[in-house]
Computed example of a mutant assay.
Amino acid sequence: MVTWPWQRDRTVARTLRVRSRGDFGDVRRVDFEELAPDIDTFLGQAAYLQLGYFETLSELIAPTPELTQKESISVAAGAALHKHRAILALIRERGDDPLDLMLPFREPLDAFRRSTHGARSLETMLSVHITAGMLDDFYLALSSSYGQTGRRVADILRGDDDRQALVDIITDAIAADEQWKSLLALWGRRLVGDTLLIARAALRPQTLDAAEERKVEPVFTDLLGAHSRRMSAMGLDA
């Protein structure tokens, strides 16, 4: 389990709930404010995650041979960078230094990026699509805990991520070579455990007791359900 250092403890009323969204089905609200991280942790992690997506996608541009695919990857990278900068601007508006808030999470989130970086470009594209999708959903669920600041972060995260082009590249590769299907399905299943560990580590307690586990279960159930739908949309088994 990753150990997360907690930053300044600002008093903010926190209520963690699953947001209403079409692909998650019925709305379920889960109130466990004692588990939600402080607002500095929330903002620092959210900002650094978006920077990580940008970094990973940017690294894929040079080795990608097709010009149209280079453009698609660059657009998705640009969307992540836009969200990163928007969260940084919000942090600065609050009078904080974004580097101070992000620095505690650099090491664990960089380790997460390395562990989910595939040996092949298609695996890494799938990593970004799956991990960013799950963690964006999780941070959207967290966002309702932080009042107006949380609503602004939610608006940022709901912005266009331009990752559908990555899905198109993946599905085209599967259509051209059926062997990709089983390989990417296996890779997609591998990503889930590492991604859920990152989500769990974002919660205030480093370990959860049985009662706390029951409180968070609906959120993680929704994350897994959305993951399954993302995989199915690409013709992959979750």
Rank of each mutant, 00 (worst) to 15 (best):
L16G: 13
R19A: 06
G147D: 08
G44S: 03
F220L: 04
D110P: 03
S121F: 15
V27Y: 15
S143K: 02
L101I: 04
L203A: 05
T221A: 13
V30Y: 07
S145Y: 07
A238L: 06
L67T: 12
Q45Y: 05
S144P: 02
L51N: 12
A176C: 08
S145T: 06
L183P: 00
M234K: 02
P63W: 02
A233E: 07
L135M: 08
R21V: 12
L51W: 10
W6L: 09
A86E: 05
T124H: 04
L49F: 01
R114S: 12
L166K: 00
I61P: 10
E55S: 11
A141Q: 09
L183H: 13
T11D: 15
A201C: 00
A202I: 05
A141G: 11
R92S: 14
F24E: 15
R114K: 12
G118C: 05
D26A: 15
F138L: 12
L236N: 05
S145V: 01
K181M: 13
R158E: 15
R19M: 02
M231L: 03
G78S: 03
A154I: 01
S127D: 03
G78I: 03
D172T: 04
P205V: 00
D40Y: 11
E55Q: 11
E213G: 01
D222H: 13
G188P: 01
I91C: 08
R29Y: 12
L196S: 01
G44I: 02
L224I: 06
D40I: 09
F54G: 10
F138Q: 10
R114A: 14
A80V: 00
F42V: 05
D136I: 13
A77W: 01
E178F: 10
E93F: 06
V27I: 15
